[in-house]
């Protein structure tokens, strides 16, 4: 009996490892829903629409739920610029705020971007925030930095300051966040391509291009 006991122990540990790994995988796997029909973005923007960049009639929409203080979102932002150049009029990009509580300045950065959006410069502020992420993420005086960015991109800084504290931008950020929560979003960046959530494992240049190309092909067949 003793001769076979180590085999039994090793086999039990192997089973326990596989079992616990499978349970953990099921628990941790993101359960992000597809964007439901009544929430699909229309081709043309309206007053309540999110921030869209690119051809409004593009066949493929890439929608991002992002956090300005999230390093992977920062990396994705750099790649997004390449994607927009590659796909040009075939791709439009949508950004929605999803600031995570684990990031100290994320909400404030989202408010800054929305305040810039009220002066028609959302995407400029979006780009600056991601480009300077390393700097402001660690700074104690983020508000001053955001105000300097506002000046750099040509905003009325006094209006920007006032808007950052206003209810409109807070409501906008909160609306995006609640929408993301209703879709089961927990991580950032979470991406949707033509309303279908991108598998987190495909959140790399090759995976994203493959999904965009597949969406383009599907659109051309319909």
């Amino acid at each position: 009996m003793k001769r076979y006991l180590p085999f039994v122990i090793v086999a039990l540990v192997a089973l326990a490892t596989i079992g616990s790994g499978a349970m953990l995988y099921r628990a941790k796997r993101p359960h992000v829903l597809s964007i439901p029909e009544n929430k699909i973005l229309s081709a043309k923007g309206d007053a309540e629409s999110p921030h869209i960049r690119g051809n409004p009639d593009a066949p493929v929409t890439l929608e991002e739920y992002g956090d300005f203080q999230c390093p992977p979102c920062g990396m994705f932002s750099a790649f997004l610029g390449q994607l927009e150049k590659e796909y040009d009029s075939r791709l439009r990009v949508v950004f929605r705020n999803f600031p995570l509580t684990m990031h100290e300045h994320a909400r404030e950065a989202a408010l800054a971007a929305e305040a810039a959006g009220l002066q028609g410069r959302f995407w400029e502020m979006h780009d600056v925030l991601y480009r300077e992420q390393e700097t402001w993420s660690k700074a104690p005086n983020v508000r001053e930095l955001f105000e300097s960015y506002a000046g750099t991109i040509g905003l009325d800084v006094d209006k920007f300051k006032k808007d950052m504290d206003g209810e409109q931008v807070k409501a906008r950020v909160e609306a995006d966040r609640q929408r993301g929560q209703s879709l089961g979003i927990q991580l950032t960046p979470t991406l949707f391509i033509n309303n279908q959530p991108l598998d987190p494992k495909d959140k790399n240049p090759e995976g994203i291009r493959a999904e965009i190309n597949a969406a383009l092909q599907k659109k051309s067949q319909t």
């Binding site: 953990l24 995988y25 941790k28 999230c70 390093p71 992977p72 991580l187 598998d199 987190p200 494992k201």
Partner: peptide, 27 residues
């Protein structure tokens, strides 16, 4: 083994490619 199993699951679920899971470890 427990530690490696946890990290393997994180990698397979894509949690290491985003924020919102375990903090600090993305880099």
């Amino acid at each position: 083994l427990a530690d490696a199993t946890y990290l393997s699951v994180q990698a397979l679920t894509g949690e290491t490619l985003g924020c919102g899971g375990s903090p600090d470890c993305f880099r």
